[in-house]
Design a protein around this nucleic acid. Structure first.
Length: 643
RNA sequence: GCCGCUUUAGCUCCAACAGGUAGAGCAAUUCCAUGGUAAGGAAAAGGUUGCUGGUUCGAGUCCAGCAAGCGGCACCA
């Protein structure tokens, strides 16, 4: 007998060799039914893996987050088995659980297409019916190598495991896989799944190695959860900024204009200008000085900064004149360094906060381009703060607080904050250890002092210094870097920046790079998806659409109202077409205009108007002045409305 | 850049059997109608089926190359 200690502290005796599944069944049939895997002495165990000694047992049920991972991981194995039956030459890479799903990387002569997915699903269902038990076995490295002698990818993984490490393999029917576990015990537990897509993926994420075929899928514990997830995926398609951007005439792409070179249409540009004005004023209030620099620079400028060495391949082809070579600028810091150096600076001048709405060009890989999310021409609000070392903390915090303000005003959600550090083993960073250590320590200390939660990530720093990245989760469930504060001791050296200190001597300032809203292009894609195209009044390209019930009787009043709104700075539009009322109303709704105003006898008589908010059925009649006050208030407070 | 898929009218993963010269809806145009909250009716028009080449008596359809888009991977100062 062995003593099993449960989560609640209870201890019970069971026969040695019983599995978590059997123990769960012995406690309560309901628990056995809900059980997915278990932690035995904090080690993840399969449901059917025998326990041989006294242990602490924690049954993972379907309600746990880990349970979904176990299920998806097991579904990946199930899929691999099905693929192997259909395409016997298949060799396997890795097949992990990921958020809301799983994938498996496969090498086979057969090209897997979307049409194959139902076939694979059918085979998977067959294996589920076969009720294959998923059995764990622990073997030596030598034995593992022998077992997987025909599987080059698995062999590579085995060879890299540390000497003496116990290797576990899982067998279900005829299928054997190298795997750490835990698993769900038997294929019969896998019922609700769907294969979603096929894609290519480099073996081990290395673009110098061969490409495998990757199948993505998703698995859930019940039909409702699966259907719900598929619905979420459908909803994302409806939100897609490329679809909404076309429907609402926000932007366009045309291959004659150039791949990845978007055109902002009047509606989109109106939103962008509103955002630009907002940021410009916010920066002005926070002591930033705005300037403007050219989109072209000399190659030499970027050689001094070091960008040319690092990013040459991602820059547009060089333009060569007789004596000079120009680059289409991929970023703006070097120009700002030159501005700093154009005068003799005193310690009293610092901090100096330069900001610019910068258009820059990057020759992104063709396969990376996507709508407004990833483009080759982009505009952003960039800033470089020149400061003394004793000002770093205040300036970084000021920048951070400004970022928080903007993120709040735009209804964005911070997912986490990342402190991106250097990884010495990677060559892409400058190699002055002293500068790195100091910069990294400064940021770390600052975050700790302010009690800001953050994840450290090695190897994600800029080549010139560490950075604090503000990671935002979008409506599409993507995590993107929205804002960044970077501490740079390198460029001041490269450009020989100095200021005269109190002591009359020359000192080196530091540069803080601050990115606020990624780029206007990417922000636009995120906002479109977030608001599903229904922008709050302060951003909406058209804020109100005026419709007269009868042109003859109410046309003049409506026209006057429209002119009054335009005078007030509202983005008003009037529909004068000889069309039925219902037709005009439908159009105002499909264009997602926040306010739709209908003017008839009552309104003309009482100097009122009747509005309907986008997406609502309710009609409200108010005085013209009350409406104006309401709109002004919404714009001022950036009021958002429920969808 | 790499792997796979896709490309038909301004828009819509809307049509065209198995190779026989392209069919809708909406929008736009013209005419008629039009007073209260999501599509009034009619007419006429709209196409070098992404581009280039090949196979064939004949190609939207089959093949090759290229381009762009899409799903991923790699990349992202």
């Amino acid at each position: 007998m062995m003593q099993i200690t449960f989560k609640d502290g209870n201890v019970k005796s069971f026969d040695e060799g019983m599995s978590p599944e059997e123990i769960a069944g012995a406690i309560a049939p309901g628990l056995k039914k809900k059980a997915v895997a278990a932690y035995v002495n904090d080690e993840l165990y399969d449901l059917n893996r025998p326990i041989y000694q006294d242990a602490k047992l924690d049954i993972i049920t379907k309600d746990n987050q880990e349970a979904l991972e176990v299920l998806n991981h097991s579904t990946a194995h199930l899929m691999a088995q099905a693929v192997k039956r259909l395409y016997p030459d298949a060799k396997f890479g890795v097949g992990p659980a990921i958020k809301d799903g799983f994938y498996y990387d496969i090498a086979t002569e057969h090209t897997i297409t979307d049409d194959d997915l139902p076939k694979i699903e059918n085979m998977m269902r067959r294996i589920v019916k076969e009720q294959e038990s998923m059995m764990r076995e622990e073997i030596s490295q030598a034995e593992a190598l022998a077992r997987f002698k025909d599987d080059p990818y698995k062999r590579e993984l085995i060879e890299e495991l540390p000497e003496g490490e116990i290797i576990s393999i899982y067998t279900q029917g005829e299928f054997v896989d190298l795997c750490r576990g835990g698993h769900i015990g038997n294929t019969r537990h896998i019922k609700h799944f769907k294969l979603l897509s096929v894609a290519g993926a480099y073996w081990r994420g290395d673009s110098d190695r061969e490409m495998l075929q990757r199948i993505y899928g998703t698995a859930w514990f019940n039909k409702e959860a699966l259907e719900h997830h598929l619905k979420v995926l459908e909803d994302r398609k409806e939100r897609d900024h490329r679809k909404l951007g076309k429907e609402l005439k926000i932007f366009m792409l045309d291959k004659r204009a150039g791949q990845g070179l978007p055109i902002w249409l009047p509606n989109g540009y109106t939103i962008r200008r509103t955002l630009e004005d907002y940021v410009y004023n916010l920066e002005r209030k926070n002591g930033y000085l705005h300037l403007s620099t050219p989109v072209l620079g000399t190659k030499e400028l970027y050689q001094i900064s070091g960008h040319f060495d690092h990013y040459q391949d991602d820059m547009f082809p060089l333009m060569k004149d007789k004596d000079e070579t120009f680059v289409l600028r991929p970023m703006s810091c070097p120009h700002h360094m030159i501005v700093y150096n154009s005068e003799l600076r005193s310690y009293r001048d610092l901090p100096l906060r330069y900001a610019e709405i910068v258009t820059q060009h990057r020759y992104e890989a063709s396969g990376a381009l996507s709508g407004l999310e990833r483009v080759r021409a982009m505009t952003l609000t960039d800033s470089h703060i020149f400061a003394r070392k004793d000002q770093i903390k205040t300036e970084v915090l000021n920048a951070y607080r400004l970022i928080l303000q903007v993120i709040k005003d735009l209804d964005l959600t911070i997912d986490y904050i990342e402190l991106a550090l250097r990884d010495k083993t990677k060559g892409k960073f400058h190699d002055d250890d002293k500068l790195w250590d100091e910069a990294e320590a400064t940021l770390k200390q600052l975050l700790d002092e302010e009690n800001i939660d953050y994840h450290e990530v090695k190897g994600e720093a800029a080549f010139y210094g560490p950075k604090i990245d503000i990671q935002v989760r979008t409506a599409m469930d993507h995590v993107i870097t929205m804002s960044t504060v970077q501490l740079d001791f390198l460029l001041p050296e490269r450009f020989d920046l100095t200021y005269i200190g109190k002591d009359g001597e020359k000192h080196r300032p530091v540069v803080i790079h601050r990115g606020l809203i990624s780029t206007w292009e990417r922000l636009m894609s995120i906002l479109l998806e977030q608001y599903k195209g229904a922008f709050p009044t302060w951003l909406a390209p058209t804020q109100m659409r005026l419709i007269a019930v009868n042109q003859e009787a109410h046309g003049d009043f409506t026209q006057n109202l429209h002119e009054q709104f335009i005078d007030l700075g509202f983005r008003s539009s009037i529909d004068l077409r000889e069309e039925k009322l219902g037709y005009k109303i439908r159009e105002a709704q499909t264009q997602k205009i926040p306010y739709q105003l209908v003017i008839g006898d009552n309104e003309v008589k009482n100097n009122t108007l009747t509005y309907r908010r986008y997406g609502q059925k309710e009609q409200t009649t108010v005085s013209v002045q009350a409406f104006i006050d309401m709109i002004n208030n919404e714009i001022k407070h950036k009021t958002k409305h429920a969808e």
